[in-house]
Nucleic acid binder design. Structure first.
Length: 646
RNA sequence: GCUGGCGUAGCUCAAUGGCAGAGCAGCUGAUUUGUAAUCAGCAGGUUGGGGGUUCAACUCCCUUCGCCAGCUCCA
């Protein structure tokens, strides 16, 4: 029986009858009068164009301009419009793919000459022209074979390559003006919806992300529904640039790099080294109070050992080797080997387990030159690394214990984070059963903790699956810091055993984990997170003493000595500059407190503290100020670090 | 590693084949100042390194080191 009516379920749950073949636009218009802001809709959950005709009973939910889903569609359409502009200016350009991404969109092109900044301006101008033309996005469905023929004739070899891998008999085109693209859609109704956009930069990108393939030219851009949102985003980018840890690292004199020393090697200046020292001693205490043992292993280990662990076969290209007395040695890229050798240094009982070996281990990895990035990607870095060796029964509790540790520490720094599970990669060692057990153990722990996560297939370490914790930095970039890796294979390879209650030898399980990750990367993330204004417990200089005139310098130095005695990290500005000048300087250095001393203070034997946010505290004795700093250190470090405990 | 861009004083940047410069920072002097820049003077360079073209190179070419954006890869 074929009725001419269809029943549409609306987003509010109500049902309404429409003639068969009604368009989504008609349905939405009839149900939500006055709302012209629809740009697409979800038909039974799938995003479709407003021009889609509905042929049967269905549920429909409009996608309104301004929603996140609409933004993705707008940006995807912007990519098409950009491709149209590029094709009109550079007819010989071949188009590859052009999706919406997190903060915008891109499109990849195969062109003889790479795009320049000037080209971006021309393309942008052309896009504005196309937008002004309010060209409709027209969808049509074609036979896949016909599509292959069409794109072959037009020379679009990348589209042909994509089409040849598709299995659907039909595919869809989207056409606006004279530009036709292979696309699933949906799109904005017409190009006029593109009102606020900007092409941001151009860079090379491999076809299909594979470095063996041709290098294409990728143009990145972003788009919003209104100019205000675009400007807000551009301001955000500018603000984020001010927080760049490389810039702040230089301005605050924390660290530097030197071409004379080599790429990817950090030099810590006194203030940067002090922050790192504070972090490291904080970590040592946190580990000791959780039952970890601090251990120290060597930097060079015989290549023979790296062969046994599988690093030589699976990680060699990232390692440095050297020869000593005819013996080949490898510089450690990870700390696990010596920890296992320590485990094996004597017979272990089940009563000894779990054993938790912690090391601030400095490792070297030969990262490709192009990936180096400030403190975030370096070639020598120090991990807050630990290896937990336990019985299979203890595994779940140990993983949960590590997760608690991670959450505790992230809470102190105030980071938000995301968790991921990474599974077996192609290049890996161990049996499928062990991988399965290990992966399940990690998932179970996260589930029991009620922590959401998503799975990254094939992203695990070569010896085991892992939970990765990604911190979000000022640019909304995700940085992998903490990681927890479950490993059944290394204990096997190194024949780690313990004596069970039955008197027999048993195989323990090993967990590799870091909390901050690398001290280098974590410091970089911290700098951007705090925009260089470290909380008092981390600030390398907690207070700068500034005098009104040189006449108070003697008293200033006396105060400095007294505060130093009490563990306050204090400096005196000895320059005979005006007070405002010295305040400005301390402010730019983001020092938490400026202690102003004039004749009034000398007479009172006191100081006038001013916070870096500009608030003025009342006159107080140096001792009282030390108490205040102590209190603030403890508060901001959740009771872990006070004065004098570094 | 790949594609593109870049490398000038401690920092930020000028100088398009013809005398290497400015501001800030530094130093010296004057000033002795009350909450984000006092004034003056001085000094600061093998223009990342090496090679080449040229009468002449910061400038053009080659090479190497390093940096930046992205791709690929990772803490």
């Amino acid at each position: 029986m074929q009725s001419n009516d269809i029943e549409i379920t609306l987003s509010d749950g109500g049902k309404k009858i429409f003639p068969r073949g009604a368009t989504v636009r008609e349905i939405l218009a009839a149900t939500a009068p006055g709302k012209n802001g629809w740009i697409a809709a979800k038909l039974d959950g799938n995003a479709v164009d407003l021009t889609k005709t509905v042929e049967g009973n269905a549920s429909i939910e409009g996608i309104a301009a301004g929603s996140n889903e609409a933004l993705v569609i707008l940006r995807h359409s912007a990519a098409h419009i950009m491709a149209q502009a590029v094709k009109s200016i550079f007819p010989e350009a071949r188009v590859a793919i052009g999706p919406a991404i997190e903060n915008g969109f891109y499109y990849d092109f195969d062109v003889a000459r790479p795009f320049t900044e000037d080209d971006l301006g021309r393309i942008e101008a052309k896009m504005k022209e196309i937008a002004a033309g309010k060209l409709p996005f027209e969808r049509s469905e074609v036979d896949r074979k016909d599509a292959i023929r069409y794109f072959s004739e037009t020379g679009e070899k990348y589209k042909v390559e994509l089409l040849e891998e598709f299995t659907d008999p039909t595919v869809s085109y989207y056409k606006q003006g004279d530009f036709t693209d292979l696309c699933r859609g949906p799109h904005i109704p017409h190009t006029g919806y593109l009102k606020a956009f900007k092409l941001t930069h151009v860079a090379g990108a491999y076809w299909r992300g594979d470095e063996r393939n041709a290098m294409l030219q990728r143009i990145y851009g972003t788009a919003f529904f209104d100019v205000e949102a675009l400007e807000k985003y551009l301001d955000f980018l500018e603000e984020a640039q001010k927080r760049d840890h490389r810039k702040l690292g230089r301005e605050l004199d924390l660290f530097s790099f030197s071409d004379e020393i080599g790429a990817g090697m950090v030099i810590y200046h006194p203030k940067g080294a002090l922050i790192r020292h504070i972090l490291e001693s904080f970590e040592k205490r946190e580990h000791l109070r959780r039952g970890y043992h601090i251990v120290v292993g060597p930097t060079l280990l015989k290549t023979e050992l790296w062969k046994r662990s599988g690093h030589f076969d699976n990680y060699r290209e990232n390692m440095y080797f050297s020869e000593i007395d005819g013996q080949s040695y490898g510089i450690k890229p990870m700390n696990c080997l010596s920890h296992m050798i320590i485990y094996k240094s004597k017979i272990r009982s089940y009563r000894d387990l779990p054993l938790r070996f912690f090391e601030l281990g400095t490792v070297h990895r030969h990262e490709k030159s192009g990936v180096l990035h400030g403190l975030m990607r370096v070639r020598q870095f120090t991990q807050d690394d630990a290896h937990l060796i336990c019985t299979p029964d203890q595994l779940n509790d140990e993983i949960k214990g590590i997760i608690d540790f991670v959450l505790d520490v992230m809470g102190i720094f105030g980071f938000s984070y995301e968790m991921e599970i990474s599974t077996r990669p192609e290049k890996s060692i161990g049996s499928d059963e062990d991988w399965d057990r290990a992966t399940k153990a990690l998932i179970k722990a996260l589930e029991e903790k009620g922590i959401p996560f998503h799975v990254c297939e094939g992203d695990g370490a070569f010896y085991g699956p892992k939970i990765d914790v990604k911190l979000l930095d000022a640019l909304d970039r995700r940085w992998q810091c903490a990681t927890i890796q479950c490993d059944f294979t290394m204990p096997e390879r190194f024949d780690l055993t313990y004596i069970g209650p039955d008197g027999g030898r048993h195989r323990p399980v090993m967990l590799h984990r870091v909390i901050l990750g690398s001290m280098e990367r974590f410091l970089g993330v911290l700098i951007e997170h705090y925009a260089g204004a470290f909380p008092v417990w981390l600030a390398p200089v907690q207070a700068e003493i500034v005098t009104v005139t040189d006449a108070q310098l003697e008293f200033a130095q006396q105060v400095a000595r007294e505060l130093q005695e009490r563990g306050v990290r204090v400096e005196v500005d000895l320059r005979s500059e005006k007070l405002g000048y010295k305040i400005r300087d301390a402010q730019k250095q983001k020092i938490p407190y400026m202690l102003v001393i004039g004749d009034k203070e000398v007479t009172a034997g006191a100081i006038a503290p001013r916070r870096r946010d500009g608030t003025q505290l009342s006159l107080m004795a140096p001792q009282k100020f030390a108490d205040l700093v102590q209190k603030e250190c403890l508060e901001s470090s959740k009771g872990r670090v006070g004065l004098g405990t570094i």
